[in-house]
Amino acid sequence: MGLSDLFEVRIVFDESHLFFPRIIQGLLLAMALVIVVVRGIPTLRAVWAGHRTWPVMDGPFDHLRFFGTLGLTVAYFLLMPPVGEMVPNTGLGFLIVSIPYMAALSVLYLHRRDRRTLLLAMANALIAPVAVWYLLARLLNVTLP
C-alpha cells in the first residue's frame, strides 16, 4: 500500500451529508475529553475542597427580572402568530402584542416606578411599535406577524 493510498477517500453522494458532521463530532468529542482532563478535574477538585463555588452559581441573581424577561418574551412570541392571523398579513399581530409586551418589560425593569418614568415607559411602549409597524409593514411592505 503506497503512501498516496493513505490519503484516498471515497465519498458516496447519498451519504455525503454525514461526512463532515462526523469529522466535526469526532473533533468535538476529542476536545471535550481534553477539556475535562485539563480544566474540569482541577475545577472539580477545587469545588470539592471548598476553595470555590460552581462557576454558574456566583454573583447576585435578580430572579424576578431574569425569569420575568424570559416569561414575558415566551408569552410575546406565543401570542403574536394567533393574534396576527385574526387580521391576516397586515402585521397587526406584531403591533397589538408588542405594545403590552414593551409596557410590561419596561415596568419590570424600572427600579423607581414614579409618575414620570411610568409615563415615559407607556409612551415608549405605544410609540415605538406603532412607528416600526407603520414604517416597515405599511410603507415598505416588510412581512410582520
Partner: peptide, 12 residues
C-alpha cells in the same frame, strides 16, 4: 428600561 424593550421588538 426604555432601550431594552425597543431592542427586543427590533430583534423580533
Amino acid at each position: 428600561y426604555l432601550l431594552y424593550p425597543i431592542i427586543m421588538i427590533m430583534c423580533v
